[in-house]
């Protein structure tokens, strides 16, 4: 049974990774999870300087989901290299470093510094960050800016470059096309969906920033639709993300066109989820007498002319 896949010049042992921000820097769960059974780990977003993050409350539970507004709290790229990377290098899995920044130059600086380090297999770019120059509007909702970040970073690395797209745009497929043309190797679909939770009794928002990012099973149908749209728009690999808690969820993402998946919020409930998803996909593929898990990718039996996406594209 072939479970792995290749992205650019890097081989992943299976198609299940853990999503940025849901697995820390890999060392927090060392007693609990056999990460060698994962396709890879996507680190927490790193910026040039450490970021404190937003004031509490930062998270709120919602129906089948959670809202967060962490504010990209992270230790900064220098501390990452010094304190976290040595441990990550010892792990028998692929390490994808996620980068967040508040200017195009900062994205470039962080990636360039990481590019000089051993033990990093690729980069995932979080473009859902406030662009300080544009008054805090997210880079990821501006197609030209997203493409510019991609092409600037492409010039700096020969490693896999993955752009993590936000669903909070009208046509995510257009963003996928733009980053592909700018040199991205793959896209991650989706980042969190803007959401809000309110306490009726106190009349206050449940998180300090009023709105935040919704994740968990609640967003799985949205994520599937976005992956489907992106898969109809580009031919580069897609990392499907959004509410995956078990192998069946993950297989749904493969069917609609994801080449691999990332398990996110489910790690908060059980950090071993990614491993059980990977094992579950393998046994599903075996039961279906497939020689390669990749045979599932994009094999949704849907009549394309019946899809509402046709009117979008």
């Amino acid at each position: 049974m072939k479970t792995g896949f290749v992205l650019r010049n890097v081989e992943f042992k299976n198609r299940v990774l853990v999503a940025s921000g849901t697995f820390g820097y890999g060392d927090e769960t060392r007693d609990l999870v056999d990460v060698a059974k994962l396709g890879g780990i996507v680190t927490k977003s790193l910026s040039w300087k450490p970021r404190d993050g937003n004031p509490p409350p930062r998270i709120a539970e919602t129906p089948s989901g959670m809202l967060n507004s962490i504010g990209l709290a992270n230790i900064g790229v220098h501390a990452f290299i010094e304190k976290k990377l040595p441990y990550l290098r010892t792990l028998d899995t692929r390490i994808i470093v996620n980068i967040a920044a508040s200017s195009v130059q900062e994205y470039c600086d962080v990636l360039a510094l990481l590019e000089s380090q051993n033990g990093i297999h690729g980069f995932e770019i979080n473009v859902s960050c406030p662009n300080v120059k544009e008054g805090g509007l997210s880079f990821g909702t501006n197609c030209d800016l997203t493409a510019e970040i991609t092409s600037r970073l492409r010039a700096l690395t020969d490693k896999p470059l993955i752009i993590k797209l936000t669903p909070n745009v009208t046509h995510i497929g257009q963003f996928a096309v733009a980053v592909k043309e700018a040199g991205a190797d793959a896209v991650s679909v989706i980042n969190t969906v803007i959401g809000m939770a309110v306490n009726a009794k106190t009349r206050k928002p449940k998180i300090s920033t009023v709105t935040g990012g919704l994740s968990g099973p609640a967003i799985k149908p949205i994520a599937l639709a976005k992956v489907y749209e992106v898969a109809q728009s580009v031919d580069i690999p897609i990392f499907g993300i959004g509410g995956i808690t078990n192998a069946e969820d993950a297989i749904e993402f493969l069917l609609v066109g994801a080449s691999a998946v990332q398990v996110g919020t489910a790690n908060f409930i059980d950090p071993r989820t990614g491993v059980s998803v990977a094992e579950g996909i393998e046994s599903f593929a075996r039961d279906q007498a497939l020689g390669d898990v990749g045979d599932l990718v994009g094999t949704l039996k849907a009549k394309k002319d019946m899809s509402v996406l046709q009117s979008w594209l």
Partner: peptide, 17 residues
Amino acid sequence: EGEMACGIGICQGCPVE
């Protein structure tokens, strides 16, 4: 007490100043 999702330092949900 803190609002927390994971309890093990990953979600960063429970800061205190």
